[in-house]
Amino acid sequence: MSQHVNPVEPFLRMERMPHIWCPGCGIGTVVNCFVRALLKTQVDIDKVSVVSGIGCTGRIAGYFRADSFHTTHGRSIPFATGLKMANPELSVWNFSGDGDLIAIGGNHFIHAARRNADLKVVCVNNFTYGMTGGQVAPTAPLHSLATTAPYGAFERPFNLPFLADSSGAVYVARWTTFHVRQLVKSMEEIMHKPGFCFIEVIAPCPTAYLRRNRLGDGLEAMRHYKQSSKVVHGADTRSVDIELGGPIVVGKFVDRDRPTTLEAMRDELHKSLGDKYVPYPTGVQR
């Protein structure tokens, strides 16, 4: 009997289904992968917290049956940072879209990476603001069309893995919603990795991005991901820009170790205060 229950269901607030995501949207796929990673790593769900901001991807926190937080626009990282500071034993996951995380919350993103806050950040990048009607996003590829760029986007988009890498993230990977097994593996890898871990997931937005750019539906985008993505582990993040309809370099780009905020604080204060400093738990086992 239990076989008839989708393995995702125990992790979701099923009373809120059906969700708002459009047919062909890739966000549900990311949720599937996260649940698979949770099941495989056997972590205690009471020690997992999901935070997200505003937007289509921001709905993940609302649908997830864990201690979840649906924050104000762009502020998912500050909330998550505070949550982690106060509860160092929590595994804090941050699901946000590109608009929320990189545009409105861009400053928080680079600073959390700089100080190596112990967060797992998953950015579902669909190149547009889906929920509000397809405005041009800071990730929109050059020449792509949007409601606020009817003649084509002319501003250079962010290269998210490079942004995270140069800001100091300890783990940077990029996958598409086609690469489900690899995405699960990446999520498993960062489940217990201390520090600022960043995964960019390229996802189709059939309603606001694909349709406006004549790129077909969600399935067409998935076929495109399958055909034109190249797995290059350890690629130089400067070389992984995305162009409209061009190849997508995916893979695990960065995996390094740096002390987290709480570890750095402990070490620094211990150095200056000596035994007067009462250690604060870091939540990190090295």
């Binding site: 393995p7 289904m17 969700h19 995501w21």
Partner: peptide, 15 residues
């Protein structure tokens, strides 16, 4: 269970 991992609407899974 690849169908289950892809399905954005949690409507299918394989065992």
């Amino acid at each position: 269970d690849l169908c289950g991992m892809y399905c954005p609407d949690f409507a299918i899974h394989g065992v």
